[in-house]
Design a binder for these strands. Structure first.
Lengths: 207, 207
DNA sequence: AACTTCTTGACACCTGGTGACATCAACGAC
DNA sequence: GTCGTTGATGTCACCAGGTGTCAAGAAGTT
């Protein structure tokens, strides 16, 4: 346990928390891959991870969250990337890079293990999970819209453009993700993303 | 009851069914307007309509459905309108008319009574309802995409354009609906719709 | 009147989700 | 070393959404 004591900045309680969280996620994904989302009860997931049902809900707000939680980071990543793009860049380019942050997270995870792909397929096939996914996207859209408005010096409440542009970017993301999922990861995400934004660019970059 | 017997094509059982359904919807919307979606139980709705909880679930698949069910018709209306537009019409125009069918349903309902407006606001403010709304939209998107593909002689599975165009149209719908809702119905839906599609047209109509 | 069909209510049951409380391990202060 | 504190956990009770089942009743049929 030498390596442990060399990291005083991370308390043991925190590491244990992370461990339980991972265990829960792992158990959930494995069970759901076999039986499907609806057939797996929270009790079963908790039991498989060696904790109680009550503890599960101390880590995840809902049964859907254990599958979908990682999306929160992707949203933050997109937002941050858009904010970091040079102000002079055309909207279609900036948004393409922002969306690519999210898409790359899926594609990279898929490279080694195909785990991300299976999770995406599970989400897109399960109504309850798809609904949560769409809710996340709605949040992303709000965030991207305020950022897009800021870049152009517009009022996100008064002008239509920011929400339209953010929505269009997410439509591209959605379309690419679905194609990638339907092709079992065979199609190239980067190429798909470029083509989708090429089609949308005329509207994104119009004055 | 003379008027009744003059319509043999509509059985009494069917009319009664419609009546109970309306009563349930009415009770639900009224209660939710006062207390909010989450605070109203299915038992309370059923009791207010004079039926049992079990009967409620024979009419609606979920508590959300009693609020959101009318969306199903709007989706069918959009799809039908797109299919009915002349083939020579540019995509942006055809899609604008299709979306307007849905938007007009909201706006008309609001003209007299403001009921549609309140329902839309309830949906957009309540996460559970918004999620269901987004699921409906996802279905609309699939339907619009196959229709858009048919109009252009494309394969909806192979080409990106159909799903992109359908998605963009729904982003316009969404943006307009939200603006209309946020302005408490003050903004003109028709004008908003035109402006949104004007912004999107360059992408929709590109070759 | 007897029969059939459709609708309903009553009841039991499962599951997701939450509040309350007791317990136990880790940690710091004395 | 002991004591109090803090945080994570398990247990239990409970609520609400949702479903299966069955028996009773109204409507329409022969």
């Amino acid at each position: 346990m030498v390596g442990v004591s060399l990291r005083p900045e991370v308390t043991m309680a925190q590491r244990k928390r992370q461990l339980v969280s991972d265990e829960l996620t792992e158990a959930a994904l494995q069970l759901m891959a076999q039986e499907g989302f609806d057939a797996v009860t929270v009790d079963a997931i908790a039991a498989a991870a060696g904790v109680s049902k009550r503890t599960f809900f101390r880590y995840f707000a809902s049964k859907e969250d254990v599958v979908v939680q990682f999306l929160a980071d992707m949203g933050a990543g997109m937002h941050a990337e858009l904010a970091a793009r040079p102000a002079a860049e055309p909207p279609s380019t900036a948004l393409r890079h922002a969306v690519w942050v999210a898409m790359a997270a899926c594609a990279d995870g898929a490279e080694h293990s195909g785990r991300a792909l299976r999770v995406v397929q599970l989400i897109l096939r399960t109504p309850a999970l798809r609904a949560r996914f769409l809710e996340h996207q709605a949040q992303w859209r709000d965030d991207l819209a305020v950022e897009a408005a800021r870049r152009r010096g517009l009022d996100p409440e008064a002008d239509l453009y920011p929400r339209l542009a953010a929505g269009a970017a997410l439509v591209a993301f959605d379309t690419v993700l679905r194609r990638w999922s339907d092709s079992d990861g065979a199609d190239d995400p980067a190429d798909l993303t470029d083509r989708a934004f090429a089609a949308l660019a005329p509207a994104l970059d119009a004055d």
